[in-house]
Design a protein around this nucleic acid. Structure first.
Lengths: 326, 326
DNA sequence: CGCCCGCGTGCTCATATGAGCAAAGATCCC
DNA sequence: GGGATCTTTGCTCATATGAGCACGCGGGCG
């Protein structure tokens, strides 16, 4: 009885979706009233037998976005579809595109935008349309300009975003992590650095990514930390870094000594911001993403559907440490 | 301009299909009239950005069936979906299920059904519902009962189909291929065999499969032919066998001498039948399927979507040798 | 044995959608 | 620059669909 109904609903669905027949026609074919057909169709949909997929490089996943907003208390969530995408790189690129789109569509347009740097941010800068804004001050929120292997990526990112937005870039002329905390205090009190940090603290919006806690991190790549350092942090619970600061699953700083040697906006500023946009993709970053979202480091998350799914399922039970959604 | 329209249509599609918004609502969100939204949606569908898939073991592919009927001049075509199916075995099973369903739904119900034997037919027999018909005479249309490795599969198939259809099975008590054509003539003129063959020629409907022209064939497996024999046939153009007879791409018998040693219904009887149902699946059988369909050996084809796709694209240009559709 | 509850069914009506058409705008060719 | 044509746009109307409701049937309970 229930079995035959299922079969019927499949036949109805085939005729409806694949053969473009009207419910009434299906009714006369299967000897049912059109209302029965309608109910069968609704059932087939509810049972998940009908899968509607939108295949396009710029396609998003709206229902997942909604669930993500709700379960994680985010002001907004952008989830891009990875359907029919081959590589991790392609996904990265699509997420960056989505972040660029989001930034462009932001209203009110931020006057001052604080940004971190790294591969993700760089990609976003490339995807931004020229003239995406009419005058934005772009401010770096963490140090690290100089040591990067491909020198100047961080600077280029900031400058590109600023230029395309018809505005100025304020670079943070400092290493990401210093060897002694005294040096760090000294450099932060320097006018050039201090002014930029003050500027950063006053930003209307922040745009940042996060790194995984493994040796593939840019901080290792750039020579600020060794693979051993990172392994040590992982042993102490680190799941990844945000603007150069390693956090554990609860979003707390793992190593305070290290943190005090790290130049840039403190995490509290991100948590206090009315608009802070995190852009995080890839299976390697699921754990950091969870920590970032769960500890209220961002109000907006741009990510891929795999990460979103992971967040929704794992975050469901650990609904603590959230911040009120806007 | 065209680019932005595409983006718009994707956004509209997302809101429509994923967010269950009405076209009017989407119109006010995107600042468009609802007609524009409707057109955008139609465009997105036409461009193939919206993929609707029905995921169910018994799901069919109706639009492909239609194209298959039209391009290949078939009276009917059943194409099962392989979406989300893991192995070749699973596909086989689904196609067999579909064939069983088709047989059950056949109207008028055939009084006499001629069948071949083999793995496919056996599987169909298992999938048939008990009581699928109220009295069918099942007749074997080609020999080969005894030599099969798992003795009696051919007989079991026929008997199962007959029993479940509340009828009798008439077995063909003969090897598939004899060593001398004289023996073949002698055995065919024997009453027991001759009567069954006459019965078979008078069947209302035929149900058969086809084998690939390689060493995996049941004919090799059963010891009627050696792998070398088959290789020789392939060199002479064989693409596979139908009821024990090897045919080339045009559907013609490859080796007349061999054919004259083969016991069973001649291919002409299949071509002349008003209802002959071929059940063919798998990439290995694409070539035979093409020959069978192209040379009018069947009026109805039951297959998987991969094979169907292949048939449509390759058959498109070689539209010769077809028979008028019923 | 009859009554009541719950479910499935087919209805009425409101709403959503698609076809076809006339006007406006863009484009191209002279 | 002007006219012809081709595309795009917003409309009217017919059709398709979904929500809610009343009816009838069957099964459990008094």
């Amino acid at each position: 009885m229930i079995e035959s109904d299922e079969l019927l609903s499949i036949r109805a669905a085939e005729l409806y979706y694949e053969d473009d027949k009207t419910q009434d026609e299906i009714g006369s074919i299967l000897r049912l009233t059109r209302w029965k057909v309608g109910r069968l169709l609704a059932q087939a949909k509810a049972d998940g037998f009908i899968r509607i997929e939108i295949v396009h490089p710029r396609a998003r996943r709206l229902p997942i976005e909604r669930r993500l907003r709700e379960t994680c208390g985010l002001a907004d969530a952008i989830v891009v579809s990875t359907a029919g995408v081959d590589g991790e790189d392609e996904v990265q690129s699509r997420v960056a595109q989505a972040a660029a789109d989001y930034l462009t569509a932001l209203r009110p347009v931020p006057r001052t935008l604080g940004i971190s740097w790294g591969r993700t941010l760089h990609e976003i800068s490339l995807h931004l349309e020229d003239g995406w804004a009419a005058g934005v001050d772009v401010v770096q929120i963490n140090g690290g300009v100089s040591l990067t292997r491909r020198a100047g990526t961080a600077a280029t990112t900031a400058v590109t975003i600023a230029q395309k937005g018809r505005g100025q870039a304020a670079l943070l002329p400092s290493p990401a992590i210093l060897e002694h905390r005294e040096t760090k205090r000294a450099i932060e009190s320097d006018r050039a650095v201090g002014a930029v940090l003050a500027h950063a603290r006053a930003a209307d919006a922040y745009l940042f990514s996060a790194g995984p806690a493994d040796e593939s991190s840019v901080l290792v790549d750039s020579g600020y930390l060794t693979a051993d350092d990172v392994a040590g942090l992982v042993r102490r619970g680190a799941v990844g870094d945000v603007v150069g600061r390693y956090i554990d699953a609860t979003g707390a700083v793992v190593d305070h000594e290290l943190d005090e040697r790290t130049v840039g906006l403190p995490l509290e500023s991100l948590r206090a911001a009315t608009l802070s946009i995190a852009v995080i993709t890839g299976a390697a970053k699921h754990a950091v993403a969870r920590a970032v979202v769960g500890s209220g480091l961002c109000t907006v998350l741009v990510t891929d559907d795999g990460t979103a799914e992971n967040l929704i399922t794992t975050q469901a039970r650990t609904s603590e440490g959230q911040r009120g959604s806007a």
